[in-house]
Design a binder for these strands. Structure first.
Lengths: 112, 112
DNA sequence: ACAAGTACTTACTTTTTAGTAAGTTACTTA
DNA sequence: TAAGTAACTTACTAAAAAGTAAGTACTTGT
């Protein structure tokens, strides 16, 4: 009984594309990171850190890792000291541009 | 100093349209509720409850209240017993259709 | 008198997400 | 010799979101 319920929940989570999207691309920081990389093509860790108001290094690094895992962002690190790491969008990441643009437009029109 | 930081955070929250969107329309249940009302035009509380796998009545009522406050959903209640309440989208709510459709398509293409 | 129906609310617990502050690495420059 | 730099990680705390279970209100049908 309980197992059946849990199984159903799991299937829903796996099946509703909007839910999946929100789980993976939603949240407080990911859309902002993606949007910055749409605007800037290549950004370093510190640049992102400075550009995003209020984010901590911990959060930034965590979100970037997530986005890498999702193949939305790619990371390129140079073996120099001090370290140099570049972040940019993958093709998949770039393909989010239209979605985010239309969200932005809707938001500007409808929310304050 | 600390106040300035807080103020900045606040401004960012107020200003980034994608962040605002995610805060208001994001989350686990809101997009699903909206999507169902796009598909069905009018739904009653229990219908939504049954249609959304895993949601509790508490969550449903909470989210519907939020969506009403945001003028995305409108509520029509009939003074009968047992109670009858209908939910449908406002024009603003309906205007989310394209956004959600394109999110769905992107999600189907890119996420599993 | 009691169960059923509908749309909730309340109180409480658990889980998830985010924030804070400090530490780490390994080389460079003053 | 000490400070600076970039990109992190770790340990800990706090806040927000979600889940669970039970209760409420009012009336009709049995």
């Amino acid at each position: 009984m309980a197992e059946k319920l849990i199984e159903k929940k799991y299937q829903q989570a796996k099946e509703c594309p909007i839910t999946i999207f929100m789980e993976q691309i939603g949240g407080k920081w990911k859309p902002v990171i993606i949007w910055l990389l749409i605007l800037n093509e290549v950004m370093r860790f510190n640049e992102l850190d400075k550009a995003i108001n209020g984010i901590s290094q911990k959060m930034l690094s965590q979100q970037l890792k997530d986005l890498e895992r999702l193949k939305i962002v790619k990371r390129k690190s140079y073996p120099v000291i001090p370290p140099k790491v570049e972040y940019r969008l993958t093709e998949k990441g770039k393909s989010l541009k239209e979605n985010l643009t239309s969200i932005m437009e809707w938001s500007n029109k409808n929310l304050k």
